[in-house]
């Protein structure tokens, strides 16, 4: 798209700066990867940076070997992420559209009660009772419904919609399009970059959430998610403070170093979701949307 121009000093400086950013942000991940591929006992000696010292895949085999449920949990994680993201993005854009319309009668009241929810929460017990009374316990919908909307996402989408030239929608109206058609045919295509962004937020939120599985869905093993299973494995490697005060201290002392397992779990838990971003990047190309609509 950009015509080839000659590379300037500015480009070189930029390149070097970004190389710096890459080094600084990539290091921890390489470090995690190296420790996850290192002998667990040896890891206790520290000093591992980006290469394993005593290479092994035992930490991974221990995680996969000890848990037959991991594959189906992975499937459930993917499912909740896909469904949660799609429903979430539909809900967010629809609501965002209505409150982006300044002529909408309820624009301000809805905006206000929406924003307030960012800062107001009843706490765990009332939320738990609500979910239970709605009959959502051990039901897949418990992954979808409570996380349907977040005020932050809706407001961000609306701020993009606010920037869409009014002329576009006005002219569509003249042609007799109703509000729903305008939303679907004009607004959505124009908002693809922000939809991609919020999808990423939603997907990461869905993917990383294990606490709702624990609170609301642990009674149904079909609903177990990858993050929840990994959390349980992590628990198994941690020394329990209570157990050590009993006569079982000898057993506890023999626990392996949890650090390597912890790192392997981090890798397994994050790599799938990391792969989402590169697919969304094509929506971040400058001029993509406006150009498309204008022509």
């Amino acid at each position: 798209m950009m015509k080839t121009r000659k590379i300037t000093v500015f480009d070189i400086v930029l390149l070097i700066m970004m190389l710096g950013v890459i080094i600084v942000t990539l290091y921890p991940f390489l470090n995690i990867l190296a420790i996850s591929l290192n002998n667990a006992t040896d890891t206790a000696r520290g000093g591992i940076h980006i290469l394993p010292r005593d290479f092994t895949i035992a930490n991974y085999t221990e995680i996969f070997g000890g848990n037959a449920n991991l594959l189906s949990a992975f499937g459930m994680s993917v499912l909740r992420t896909v469904v949660g993201t799609i429903t979430g993005i539909i809900a967010s854009t629809m609501l965002a559209y209505t409150i982006s319309r300044r002529d909408f009668v309820f624009n301000r009241p809805i905006s206000f009660i929406l924003v307030i929810t960012m800062f107001v929460s009843g706490g765990l017990i009332p939320e738990y009772m609500l979910i239970r009374d709605l009959g959502l316990m051990n039901n897949f919908m418990v992954y979808i419904l409570p996380m349907l909307l977040t005020a932050f996402n809706v407001i961000v989408i609306r701020s993009f919609m606010d920037n869409i030239p009014m002329a576009l929608t006005e002219s569509a109206k003249m042609d007799g399009a109703n509000d729903f058609t305008i939303f679907w045919r004009i607004i959505i295509p124009l908002c693809l970059p922000v939809i991609a962004t919020v999808s990423l937020f939603l997907a990461v939120g869905q993917w990383n959430n294990w606490f709702d599985t624990y609170l609301y869905a642990r009674g149904n093993s079909n609903l177990s998610t990858l993050q929840y299973e990994l959390m349980k494995i992590l628990d198994n490697t941690n020394v329990s403070q209570g157990a050590v005060t009993s006569g079982n201290a000898e057993f506890i002392a023999r626990q392996t170093n949890p650090q390597s397992i912890q790192m392997a779990i981090t890798i397994i838990a994050t790599v799938p979701i990391l792969l989402v971003y590169p697919f969304l990047q094509r929506y971040f190309v400058t001029g993509l949307t406006l150009g498309a609509v204008k022509s």
Binding site: N139, N220, S221
Partner: peptide, 22 residues
């Protein structure tokens, strides 16, 4: 395609819901 995916997921979750109490 999107709607079909959505629909399929709801079917799956309905099935999951029934598997509720072990």
């Amino acid at each position: 395609l999107l709607f079909m995916l959505l629909f399929a997921s709801f079917l799956v979750l309905a099935a999951c819901g029934n598997g509720g109490s072990e």
